[in-house]
Design a protein around this nucleic acid. Structure first.
Lengths: 269, 269
DNA sequence: CGGCCTTTTGAGGCTACTCAAAGCCGGTGG
DNA sequence: CCACCGGCTTTGAGTAGCCTCAAAAGGCCG
């Protein structure tokens, strides 16, 4: 809920474009030293590609847990990618109902849709302290055109994001509450494994509230709680505040009727 | 349910790549005469772009209503775009539950994800007799690289598709049965308007069964029926077999808490 | 006319929701 | 150091929306 303090005018509630973190953007990490290069779930870039990216990267920013990075309906000049941390992307209806649409892990792109439309139709909030790379929205079209490899990667990323939403859609449309929770747990663990955020015992430290889980899965808070406890009693999933663990991932997958996508060396920017 | 008769071996249930419609592909429509060029909801291509596309287009095929164009888990050598007609994209769980993920209207791309992964994780079925343009999957990477404008369009399309899924996700997660049906009705009408398929009274001729509506919205068949009849009694939506009409689109949007995306000249291939 | 698919309607039951309140935990201030 | 407060979690009780089972009616085609 706290606003990011880097921004000159993040508190501005109008729909005018905001100059997010205008002069505060500095580069603390050079692309060639990007820690994500080491991550086994991601496809490392060639030195050449890294040089391209560095050219377009304006810098990186830190934002603390709870910060709102993007706000629904606002225009943005920037495109971000996740260097470190986890965020949620959600949409709010007028009467307050909220749907969390997806989670964003290191390597994911934030606000791609905003590069085409004027305003993004969702908000993005940090679940952990995060660091984000900043790109200029306008440069992005040039990037696609001048460095076709990265243009290809971008399309790839968009297609992957689509696959993830498809998966969530199946969960919401077809699965029971317990199946949904099991599905989400496994999906999160898988993403964490891909981005080197998981513990070696299939656990993930993520301070997500049950209200957020509920808003992701289309369940009520109360029923989410009961479902969590029920799955825990069965030993399938141990989801304590701040930490998620799935003792037997295969069993959980089986229960949720979820097919894990093989690890797939996704590209990132 | 009927298989497409163009295919040499569409009945092959193994996971080996199939040579879909090998020699049967002919070009009945030249890109420069593409009827979608005339459509107000789509962005017309420049003659130059049309020439690019023509170069990569292998031809077009017709498939009749009920044909399965793509099958979940299969490899495909081809990429398609919708020249005419409407299709659904769905995913099936092992126990038979099915989730319709999205509808595809003229100008939409089929199987983009398959261009990156080996196999697509969903099936595609024609709701109407359709005509599809055929591209070679392998050529597609070259297309992005050699004609960056089209690469940009492709990314744009992928981002749009993602936005649509996001919208569906909100519907499944947050809306009641009646709101979901109202939402879907308006969404379909909007897509139809964009692609010049709607009647002038906000109606759409689309032979979709209530079972399919149910599988799209995550409702049971019986309850879908009751919900349809209930909305009809209230005069919000008239959804007869084969024809959907929304007398007052604004009222329906309002009821479903759905914000129509302004018409947006989407690109197409 | 008979068979198949789809739509419609009835009846009863379960899943998940709402309302409500108590327990927990960390932070703040007296 | 302890009392208090706000946010999160947990549990109880009653309800409603949606589901399943079941069967009849309508439409299309051989």
């Amino acid at each position: 809920m706290t606003k990011i303090d880097f921004s000159a005018d993040a508190a501005d509630q109008t729909s005018t474009p905001v100059r997010e973190w205008g002069s505060k953007v500095k580069s603390t990490v050079a692309c060639k030293d990007c820690p994500l290069q080491e991550c086994s779930g991601l496809r490392a870039h060639t030195p050449e590609e890294l040089a391209y990216i560095q050219e377009y990267k304006q810098g990186d920013i830190a934002a603390e847990r709870g910060s709102i990075i993007l706000e629904q309906g606002k225009k943005t000049h920037h495109l971000h990618s996740v260097l470190e941390g986890v965020l949620i992307r959600y949409r709010t209806l007028e009467d307050g109902r909220r749907q969390i649409v997806n989670f964003m892990f290191p390597g994911d792109l934030i606000g791609l849709q905003g590069a085409f439309d004027d305003a993004v139709m969702h908000s993005v909030e940090a679940l952990l302290d995060v660091r984000l790379c900043v790109f200029e929205r306008g440069d992005f079209k040039a990037l696609i055109k001048s460095h076709t490899d990265l243009g290809y990667d971008l399309t790839w990323l968009a297609a992957k994001e689509e696959t993830a939403l498809e998966e969530h859609l199946v969960a919401l449309g077809q699965r029971s509450a317990k199946e949904r929770v099991a599905y989400l747990a496994v999906w999160l663990i898988d993403r964490a494994l891909d981005t080197c955020m998981a513990g070696d015992d299939n656990s993930l430290d993520l301070p997500i509230t049950q209200a957020q889980i509920a808003d992701m899965l289309g369940l009520s808070l109360v029923h989410t709680n009961r479902t969590l406890r029920s799955l825990e009693r069965e030993g399938l999933i141990v989801w304590k505040p701040g930490n998620l663990r799935v003792p037997d991932v295969d069993a959980a997958c089986d229960y949720a009727q979820y097919q894990r996508a093989g690890t797939n060396n996704r590209p990132f920017i």
